[in-house]
Amino acid sequence: MHIIEFIFSPLLALLIGVFFLGLARKVMARIQWRYGPPVMQPLIDIIRLLSQKSASHGVAFNIGLVMSLAGSLVITLFLPFGKIAPMSNSGGMLVILYLMLIGPLGMAISSGESANPNASIGISRKLLLAMGYELPFLLVVLALMKAYNTTSITEIVSLQRDTGWSMFTFPLVLSGIAYLLILPAMLGVRPFEVVNAPQEISSGPLVEYGGPYLALATLQHALALFIGISLFVNLMWGGAANPVIFFLKMLVVFFLGIFVNAVFPRLRIDQAIRYLWRWPSLIAFAGLILVCVTGS
């Protein structure tokens, strides 16, 4: 039973992530009055990419990408999906926060090795954007941990079962609003799609990836999408005891992100940081103070 969960939860995460990528393209097309590709399109792309002979720029080019995807896969073992969380007793929120570093870092090493300035600009933007949303995000996470007096994500989820969704309980309302405001940045959708801007910097870090590498990068992107949404649902919308309900909640959050993505143009990176460090940070900070004051 336990071993099945270990294999099952990363595969489920990959499947849902790839499904979300396909759904995103379809929904975006419908919003733009197009017919859109089939929902299976990312899977078709991945099969095609795996069969292409790509150029490799060196050992770190391969290993960085492998490291990045492996790190993201490990996070899915810690995140509860419904009740499935096989490794949740080996570490809590802090471990997840630090595991979330491996993905971007591996990608950064890999695309840095590709020796293309477009990739370097993309990575620089990616790290800056992460710096931007980490400031409010850490305040939100600390407020949550302080309010529930635990660092374990499974406990945060199970406590919400008694008190209701933390987004709508009293001291955490402000944190919830701040989290909602930074969610597009964490998912990397417009208006914060500065990293992979294809028109400006030739898709940034992905510029030299082709064939199997691009397939891995697509999977990594899918997993990042899954992790971002799943984290939000677990922390703010009370998780779920049932995987199906959990998936439905994720779907709602995903559609919110897509609708924002569809109507906004792209911000510049400094505009993005300025936005993230102003209102979301202030609200998140007020939320943390509120929790500290009202808490025991």
Binding site: A29, Q32, Y35, G36, D45, S54, P198, S202, S203, G210
Partner: peptide, 22 residues
């Protein structure tokens, strides 16, 4: 590639670099 004829319904999309293209 835009709404009038929409090449994406056949999976045809423009990409930024030759490395990603077929």
């Amino acid at each position: 590639i835009t709404a009038r004829w929409d090449a994406e319904r056949f999976g045809i999309i423009p990409v930024a670099t030759p490395r990603q293209a077929s």
